[in-house]
Design a protein around this nucleic acid. Structure first.
Lengths: 339, 339
DNA sequence: ACACGCAATGTAAGCGCTTGCATTTTGAAT
DNA sequence: ATTCAAAATGCAAGCGCTTACATTGCGTGT
């Protein structure tokens, strides 16, 4: 192999093939605008030289990158993994590349990443949830970067979103728990600040309680970061309080699994002594013992739809629609009537 | 807010601040090369206009992007999540941005992604495992993109790697299983083609068998993609064969969890009727019931070290060292002596 | 008061590509 | 043969930034 010769450029190819750079460019980008014979020759040279276009240059000249950026709160658990994989697959099918980064649930990191992705020429952006400083929306508008929100459905929000109704989904689940006979209900919620999904799930629980004439205003709740260990701690905390709940609704499956483990460690049987529910229906939910009753979120469908919609926006075919995806409750062993 | 005015550029800032573009550029990139008073004025204008540098332009001009690319086989399970998160955190600390994409275990997709990332001006690349076509190594060399391999340790390989010895780690685990008294040992392996980690784990099992005078040449093995459902199917397959194993070593925790579920579905008790082991020690391993005996891989440490090493390479301070990280066996309930 | 040297700033040449417009080539119709 | 669209190709101007080099301004020593 040749020792580090500088990477070939468009004009290297042009020179070798005896055509202009314009022709080479066209061969690559709109092959039908150049005659068969020329194209063949050019492509041979491209192959021969091992030429790959320089993206930065292309982005700069064409103001188009065929790249979509996504910023998720974390890669460290499975909540977003499946949906994002579907999102990426769909993008690939349509000729786009996905770049992902994660914000660790920190708003300032997220802003930084948004800027980084936009500056890198992302044609469109996928964000999770609606809650962020308005400056960043202005920024997005100024740079005219189509942006779509996922994992959340909020028709009245600034940005279009493809997601599900966190509030009513959680409310249905809570209703089911109440119908089961529970009245001492507690909740382990994710951190509410800056997280509209967590907030609306909490609201959903309150809605259901209120409907059934239960005290909804100071619901027995612990707020904690997502993470199995935090779920454990939160559960212990709840159990040490004055009135012991007979059912614990968790903000997501990860917290629920933590709660489950804590319950078992405390010698409580689930669901006999206490019922526990999750949200998301990630793989984990089915694997733990007892398996979790939870809200199933069609992550793959959401990812796919988000991809098609965002591409339409990028290509100017849509202003951005807001779509609500249906969830449903998956009944498993972790929920039963109270003793 | 102003309606979509074109995003401000360097020269807009320069004009407004009454300096040259060079000065603005210096304010941003080497603030000490410009006098306090000027800098202040420029920064005010930057703020005022809401200017953000265009990365494509910067990359093109400076041939430097402070971006690192990583390509992992999948985001759809937790194997790489933790290590990657640590990798990203460390990069951020040192002023770099991480861009991730996933190849779905497909070599051609991976190549495409490598090119995409390089073309986007990645200063360095993190790849998983060593097995790929040599053309792509030439490409990397030609473009002079420092590349580091993780999750695998192979001193003799072309590329430096920060990882662990898949072979000897698996061998230790297999030895432990044998010492426990098992002699009918089967394996559920990940797909071997193009996956050096899977291959070396299999070799590790063979090593241990051979050491103990057991038949190692046609070990009782099923090869299947990673995935809980595949682990289940593989386990059933193994159990339908002529000689039933008393211990099943799985290529990773995900497969092991699948095996566990299949065992339970078949009415087999683990570990009394059959022992099952995993590899990786992801969160899942501790959560299932019985918890998995597995090989603990220090993902975070690996991610961190990979980040520092790769940055050193990018900054020309290192040629790329190969580091082996120690793993250890975590003994949990899924392993016991055969009846 | 003057020259000198260094620090601060400006000038302008690219980086590798796309694309509007100008020019040449082609081939069908006359 | 000749003509003339239409098709194919070439020309060259940017895209927004960095940076080598040139220029200017300033404090200092005499």
């Amino acid at each position: 192999m040749e020792k580090n010769r500088r990477a070939p450029t468009l004009s290297d190819v042009a020179r070798t093939a005896n055509v202009s750079t314009a022709t080479v460019s066209r061969c690559l980008n709109s092959p039908d605008r150049v005659v068969e014979k020329t194209r063949k020759r050019v492509m041979e040279v491209v192959e021969l030289l091992g030429y790959t276009p320089n993206f930065a240059a292309r982005v700069m000249a064409a103001n188009r990158s065929f790249t979509i950026g996504a910023i998720i709160p974390t890669m460290d658990n499975a909540i977003f993994a499946r949906g994002l994989q579907a999102f990426q697959d769909q993008l690939r099918d349509q000729g786009y590349t996905l770049l992902v980064s994660s914000s660790a649930y920190k708003p300032d990191v997220e802003e930084e990443q948004i800027r980084a992705l936009v500056a890198r020429g992302a044609d469109g952006l996928l964000l999770i949830g609606h809650e962020r400083r308005s400056e960043i929306y202005d920024y997005l508008k100024q740079h005219q970067v189509p942006t779509l929100v996922a994992w959340s459905h909020l028709p009245e929000a600034d940005l279009p979103s493809i997601g599900f109704d966190n509030r009513s989904s959680m409310a249905s689940l809570a209703r089911k728990v109440i119908q089961e006979g529970h009245s001492e209900i507690a909740m382990i919620s994710g951190v509410l600040t800056g997280n509209d999904r967590a907030t609306r799930r909490k609201n959903g629980v309150e809605d259901a309680l209120r409907e059934h004439g239960l005290e909804a205003n100071h619901i027995n709740i612990v707020e904690t970061p997502y993470g199995i260990e935090h779920g454990e701690a939160a559960f212990r905390e709840l159990m040490s309080r004055a009135t012991r709940p007979t059912a614990v609704l968790c903000g997501n499956d990860v917290l629920a699994v933590g709660a489950l483990r804590a319950a078992q460690a405390l010698g409580l049987r689930v669901p006999e002594d206490v019922s526990i529910t999750g949200f998301d229906d990630i793989e984990l939910a089915e694997i733990v013992n007892p398996a979790l009753t939870t809200v199933h979120v069609p992550h793959r469908e959401m990812g796919r739809k988000a991809a098609s919609e965002l591409i339409e926006m990028v290509e100017g075919k849509s202003e951005g629609r807001t779509i609500c995806i249906d969830t449903y409750i998956v009944r498993r062993q972790s929920l039963a009537p109270p003793r």
